[in-house]
Design a binder for these strands. Structure first.
Lengths: 282, 282
DNA sequence: ATCCCGAATTCCGACATCCTGAATTTATCT
DNA sequence: AGATAAATTCAGGATGTCGGAATTCGGGAT
């Protein structure tokens, strides 16, 4: 049989006493995590823990609103409208627009790929990316992609500059996830964090991805909390001792300028106080 | 105030006798179209045509599932989770991954900004984009952005290569929208379409955006229908008579190669993928 | 080409959930 | 601070929802 959901440990606080709306939203998550070609109704119903007619009706509604669609073979998948709709979600803080000129400058100056990452719960999310001419492999992947905080240069830079207690909570939650991805034990993570905090930037040529290297710097808000990170991803050979200081300097300069433009209006992104309800998913 | 501009497609039977789920989904659309900083409950309720308590409860559910969040000032807006979730929606056809190498090659070769557009209803959606060193203004905007079919090079290239009846339907629907954006009367649109169909590519240096120019070519499926477009956006001076033919040729070449890779996902000729493949790996 | 089986979709009665209006708390403005 | 408007909570009553059963659809084998 289809092995049940892989990562969903404690999907929601209330086992099954969720509202019908929340159940429907779970369907979207299921679709998002499933095969992009589409999922069969039966499997969706099973994953959602509801009957087939119920799943069917909800999916019909989702389709009618343009959130889902039925591909050939009757398979259901997310529709493009959903994508379009969400494109504006990243704009919340205006960070993306604020950072774009910096990304373009950095990419033009360094001829490398530049990432803009923001913190989102226990993850870093790639909010934007400008590609350089060199082919890059990164954890972060595409725009909209996410990595556990601590994995990768920018992600590490953010984690290193969180308030003590939050950092600790994130570390505790992410250690298993990091081990799953095959990198870092807790000791080396804490070592890397200490160094990152001390020197203000992160340099990982430590072979996480063979041949790749990068530099990440945090973007700090008025309280010194990391809300984002700028990072460079490039070939290891392009980050030698000669070039590294230059790259760090220019990155830090842009990060600082960006911090100045931050909208102080909503820096304090709040996290749902209700236990671990929403963060378990994905 | 908040006008409920619903550009919903034909699929939506727009009677107000919608299920509660569909009403909730409309809320997401309202949030998406509203001020990215967030909307007040009162306005949301008004735009959705429901009472405040109802809107409130639905928004609470949306927030609990990570689709929305409450910013300072109690304003509601889409959350980053939504963005992350939707990032995988664009993957439906695998077109994006298939096209990425081509985009990178084109950008590297031409030193200009390259767009990948796909058709979505009456719009063209920017599925991916690789930026060149020159600052560009485009209709399409960011990844996830959309333009009415017919506006812009790639968008025009798609429209020009749709089946007769669909094209006609799109034109009829889009004419007012195009006029709204201040460009093109119907006659010149039809003229441009005829030319685009005849020569196989679109060249707009016709001053839609001052100083900007671009070339778009359609990506055709096995039946000769346009499913996507590749386009170049650049400064008008960079598309002179000398360079234009070269740009067109290389674009067409990539578009053709891309068409060959298109997934014939119409029929499930696929061998039963029961084993492991239904669970998408990350 | 036909049969057969599993999946998808439709139907319907019982029931739980959701909606509206009023009350209470919280934020915003003068 | 006071006043006002918005946001949130609360409680019945109505409506939409749920899941089993029946039907249609589609795919695979003989």
């Amino acid at each position: 049989m289809v092995s049940t959901n892989s990562l969903n440990q404690m999907t929601t606080s209330d086992t099954d006493s969720a509202s019908s709306l929340r159940r429907a939203l779970k369907l979207l998550r299921i679709l998002s995590e499933g095969n992009p070609e589409g999922l069969r109704l039966k499997d969706i119903a099973e994953a959602a823990g509801c009957s087939q007619p119920t799943a069917h009706r909800m999916l019909q509604d989702l389709a009618a609103e343009g959130f889902a669609e039925q591909a050939a073979g009757k398979r259901y998948r997310l529709a493009l409208d959903f994508y379009v709709l969400a494109a504006r979600a990243g704009q919340a803080s205006g960070l993306r627009d604020a950072a774009r000129p910096a990304l373009l400058r950095l990419s033009a100056t360094l001829s490398d790929t530049i990432f803009l990452l923001v913190r989102n719960g226990f993850d870093a999310v790639c909010l934007d990316r400008v590609e350089g001419p060199f082919p890059i492999r990164s954890f972060t992947g595409d725009i909209g992609g996410k990595v556990p905080l601590g994995l990768g240069q920018g992600s590490l830079a953010i984690l290193a500059n969180l308030p003590e207690d939050e950092q600790e909570a994130v570390i505790r939650f992410n250690i298993p996830r990091l081990l799953d991805r095959g990198f870092l034990d807790e000791a080396s993570l804490r070592g890397a964090l200490a160094q990152a905090r001390a020197q203000g930037w992160v340099n990982t040529s430590t072979g996480l991805i063979p041949g790749m290297a990068g530099v990440g710097v945090p973007v700090l808000d008025a309280q010194g909390r990391a809300v984002a990170a700028l990072s460079v991803g490039t070939l290891a050979e392009r980050l030698n001792a000669d070039r590294l200081p230059h790259v760090v300097r220019i990155l830090q300069s842009e990060a600082q300028a960006l911090a100045g433009k931050l909208n102080p209006f909503d820096v304090a992104l709040r996290y749902p106080s209700r236990s671990l309800s929403t963060i378990g998913a994905n």
